[in-house]
Each structure stands twice: as C-alpha cells, then as structure tokens.
Amino acid sequence: MPPARPLSLVTGASAGIGATFARALAARGHDLALTARRSERLETLAAELRQQHASTVTVLPADLADPAAPAALCEELARRGLAVDWLINNAGYGVPGGFVASDWHTHAEFLQVLLAAPVELAWRLLPGMRERGYGRIVNVASLAGHVPGTAGHTLYAPAKAFLIKFSQGLALESRGCGVHVCALCPGFTYSEFHDVTGTRALMNKLPGFMWQRADEVVAEGMEAVERGEAVHVTGRVNRAIKSMFKLMPDRLAFRLSARQARRYRQLD
C-alpha cells in the first residue's frame, strides 16, 4: 500500500512535462522533491503547489549534466530523511544539427542527462522502494525511440530507445516487489522543448493533430504506471504511428522516416 502522502522526485521540473507531473502529483496528495537547473522557476512552482495543494515541496536545484549530481541529490534527500516513492525521470533536451556539428563535450553532457542520470537515480532509489514494498518509476522516453533514427538530433532517438529497453528490464526485475516501472513515450508535445533547441519554426509546420498537451501526456503516464504497463505510447495518433512502422519492412520504414524528418529536423 502507498504511504498516506507519497513523496515524488521529479527531474526537469522547472517547465513542460516535468512541471505538469509535479502539479498532477500534488493534486493527488503527494509531497514533492523538485530538481532542475533553474532554481527560480522551481521556487515559483513550489510556492504554487504549497498554496494550492498544501504539499510539502523540497526544492533541490541540480545540473544532471554533472556526473556527481545524482549521488549528491540522493544523499541530500537521505540527509533530510526523505524517502522517494515516485521517481519521474523527466529531465532531457535535444541537441539539434548534425552529429559532428557539436563538440564532444556537448554530446557527453547530453548522454549524462538522458542516460546516465536516470539510470543512476533508479539504481540509488529502487532498493528503498523494494524494501518498503511500494514504488513507481516513470522514465520519460519518446515515440522517437520506437521509429528509425533520423539525421539531426542524432543521439535523441537512440537515447530514448535505451530508456524503453531499460524500463522493460527493470519492470520485469521489480515484479512482485510492489514497484512499477514505465517508459512513457509521448510524441510531439506542447512545451518549451523546441524553443530551447531552436526548432520552433520547423515544428510549427506540423499539423495540429500531431500534438498533445502536457497534461494529456502526464495523465496517461500516471494511469499507465499504476496499471503496471512497462511501456506506454501516448495518444491514438502516436500509437498508430508506432504500429505502422512496426509492420513496415525495415527499408521502407527507414526511407519514410528519413523523408519526413526533413520537415522538422535541423540537419546541419
């Protein structure tokens, strides 16, 4: 059984899907630990959640591009006597342009944030969840992890595909422990993501039916992890896209993906 007031740790909580997860969990009666780089935004969100939902909210600014950050974050939680019941591994971003257009340090930080940090946080927090017999881990992946990779944002799809496979394995390992693990796979979602990567003008060319709101994504994710789904693709359109690519011959799927990517990827 969950505790009376579960504690949820949300990474990348300063905006977008992360902030929406924080609001939805607070509305459910959760206390929150929020982390991201932008401390001012975290403090503003924390004040909102305390006022609207009487949640206890702990703000822990951190840059997950620092390899030492996950351990330091968990050590600070332990020092404060906070046991995490829900882990929302949401922090992420894209590196636009061709692979060799960015220096290696940029790619290394990307891999640290999208791969190493979520895996380490799960590794550090999962034992406590298992010991208490209750826990939920949501790894925010992407529809991109289910379709062929494309030029531009070259590491993004592989990183999300890794999170999907990682979540599946961890979900199987956690069966019978009261811990559910889910890779949440949204498609195009209204957020700051494309403003940060500088691809907003390209994304605005996509039709409206391709997009979901962050609150729709989060609602589906919370329901999916509670049901025990190891992987959940949000929205009917995205599920149809996944199924279509799964049924296509690999060569055709690759060609179609490459052609469509020219519409919304920065390729150089």
Score class of each variant (00 low, 15 high):
residue 2 P to D: 07
residue 3 P to S: 04
residue 4 A to Y: 06
residue 8 S to P: 05
residue 13 A to K: 15
residue 14 S to T: 06
residue 18 G to E: 09
residue 20 T to W: 00
residue 21 F to P: 14
residue 30 H to F: 13
residue 30 H to L: 01
residue 35 T to L: 02
residue 36 A to G: 05
residue 41 R to A: 14
residue 51 Q to I: 08
residue 52 Q to V: 12
residue 52 Q to R: 15
residue 53 H to A: 14
residue 54 A to K: 15
residue 55 S to C: 08
residue 58 T to N: 15
residue 60 L to H: 04
residue 65 A to L: 02
residue 68 A to H: 12
residue 68 A to L: 13
residue 80 R to T: 04
residue 84 V to D: 00
residue 84 V to R: 03
residue 85 D to F: 10
residue 86 W to G: 06
residue 88 I to D: 00
residue 90 N to K: 13
residue 92 G to N: 12
residue 95 V to D: 05
residue 96 P to F: 06
residue 101 A to E: 07
residue 101 A to C: 11
residue 104 W to A: 04
residue 105 H to Q: 14
residue 109 E to I: 05
residue 111 L to S: 08
residue 111 L to R: 13
residue 115 L to H: 07
residue 117 A to L: 06
residue 119 V to C: 07
residue 119 V to T: 13
residue 121 L to R: 07
residue 126 L to R: 10
residue 129 M to Y: 01
residue 131 E to I: 03
residue 135 G to T: 03
residue 136 R to A: 12
residue 137 I to G: 08
residue 138 V to W: 07
residue 141 A to C: 03
residue 147 V to Y: 12
residue 147 V to R: 03
residue 147 V to G: 08
residue 148 P to Q: 00
residue 148 P to A: 06
residue 150 T to P: 09
residue 152 G to K: 01
residue 152 G to C: 04
residue 154 T to V: 11
residue 158 P to L: 13
residue 167 S to F: 08
residue 169 G to R: 05
residue 174 S to Q: 01
residue 174 S to W: 09
residue 176 G to N: 06
residue 176 G to H: 03
residue 177 C to Y: 10
residue 181 V to K: 10
residue 181 V to S: 05
residue 182 C to V: 10
residue 183 A to Q: 13
residue 185 C to Q: 13
residue 188 F to M: 05
residue 190 Y to T: 10
residue 192 E to F: 06
residue 193 F to Q: 03
residue 194 H to Y: 12
residue 195 D to H: 15
residue 197 T to R: 00
residue 200 R to P: 01
residue 202 L to D: 04
residue 204 N to Y: 02
residue 204 N to A: 06
residue 207 P to S: 00
residue 210 M to Q: 01
residue 212 Q to D: 06
residue 213 R to F: 03
residue 215 D to A: 06
residue 217 V to H: 10
residue 219 A to Q: 13
residue 221 G to K: 07
residue 222 M to C: 11
residue 222 M to Q: 12
residue 224 A to N: 09
residue 229 E to D: 15
residue 231 V to W: 02
residue 235 G to P: 10
residue 237 V to R: 02
residue 239 R to Y: 05
residue 249 P to F: 00
residue 250 D to R: 15
residue 251 R to M: 03
residue 252 L to C: 09
residue 252 L to D: 04
residue 255 R to L: 10
residue 255 R to A: 11
residue 257 S to A: 14
residue 257 S to R: 01
residue 261 A to W: 04
residue 263 R to H: 09
residue 264 Y to G: 00
residue 265 R to E: 09
